[in-house]
Design a protein around this nucleic acid. Sequence first.
DNA 1: CGCGCTATTGAATTGTTTCAATTTAGGTGG
DNA 2: CCACCTAAATTGAAACAATTCAATAGCGCG
Lengths: 235, 235
Amino acid sequence: MKCHHYPNQNGEYELCVSKVPIFNHLNQEEMREIAFLIQSRTFKKGEVIFSANSSLNELFIIHTGRVKIYRLSDSGREQILRILEAKEFMGELTLFNESLTQNYAEATEKTEVCVIQKSDLQKLIVRKPSIALKILEEFSKRLTNADQLIQQLGSADVETRIASVLIDLNKKQNSNIVTLPMSKGDFASLIGTTQETISRKLSAFQERGWIKLTGQRVVSILNIEKLISFTEDTK
Amino acid sequence: MKCHHYPNQNGEYELCVSKVPIFNHLNQEEMREIAFLIQSRTFKKGEVIFSANSSLNELFIIHTGRVKIYRLSDSGREQILRILEAKEFMGELTLFNESLTQNYAEATEKTEVCVIQKSDLQKLIVRKPSIALKILEEFSKRLTNADQLIQQLGSADVETRIASVLIDLNKKQNSNIVTLPMSKGDFASLIGTTQETISRKLSAFQERGWIKLTGQRVVSILNIEKLISFTEDTK
DNA sequence: CGCGCTATTGAATTGTTTCAATTTAGGTGG
DNA sequence: CCACCTAAATTGAAACAATTCAATAGCGCG
């Protein structure tokens, strides 16, 4: 893990602050001030950023890269809760909840994060309540996503869950050639199934001519309508 | 649905405001002011408070009773996301998210709610940012609960999920005689299984001597340690 | 006290997992 | 830039957990 303080010599210090939604609505002066409270850290693919049972004293904001947030069950099974990308933050739950986190965070690719101390952020929020509103917005979005995942895990079969993810990615990436933001193994962990089942179901979609698999993470969507109507079928 | 405005003749108007976490930290004067913005409504068991695809213009705070928040899949299957009880609120997601809600809310018993207009609440938050912090706390708790449910649904078998709920209730109600806060059917919908399976698994626990079923919603926990170690088993 | 909703139980069926054996992809280093 | 090597993905077959549908039993509300 590399680590350095903002600001650095070439004025890069505003990178995080000026780009992330929770701060970028502030004025120049305010952002400059926050930049001094921020540290930068870099994690390699596979490095753990924080673990369960730790009391986090900092909020991490992703600058570049990707992080998976997951839990481990007693049996050792990993359940991914969400994948975070640039501009999103993590470590927030212990900000408003005293307790220890139960989550793990691991970089799934080279990832640069900006770190701000919990105590510094708390002081900032008091002075600039608009920051709290931005966090509320993000929480709101996450809760909606979590609710959707709960619905999928609780009441859709694996094939439907996979189709739903493809449809979401198709919409989000606005392209028929979709790149999975994670390995198939992580994909499996996210939707509560196994790598093997994912493989089988994707092959089945391919055989039906709805998709075409290219490489490990690329899926060409040939017939989005079929995929959609599949998720809507009463089964 | 009954409906009346606060304040009523016998000074009951502060009931909701003075008790719920999002307002009760304010001073008397402020609470009195808020009380004038609040309406009371009563729902019978089974009544729908709001439905998917509606743009909610209000926040509902539960005064008495219980509400299930759920989604319906295209196939008509109901997935409960959470059960709300006194002092909790609902309709919050459209406060910070423009879009339509995808959730349903239904009273599972006679329920009294306090209603505040979204626009009124937004004005209040600007004047009293501490309200936003209370909402953040609640969101944080909900996100943690949602994460836990995701983990359970995604990586634990049904028996383990049921045992976990019993353990949680035992802790929350602080008694070995636990009352389910919902019907077994709703219990099934919450943990993503069927009534029949719940029945079978509870019977199995009873046969092993870990619990004793009394009536429809009462479970005596005879051996909490066995239940706990069961959830921790590598299976 | 009776009716209706809620829960139970049985048996067949299905979807998914598991474990093991291969195959493939794609990053790394020469 | 190619060959290699490892991590990732695929495929098969057996085993299993949970669902479904249907029929019965029982609680508890009015």
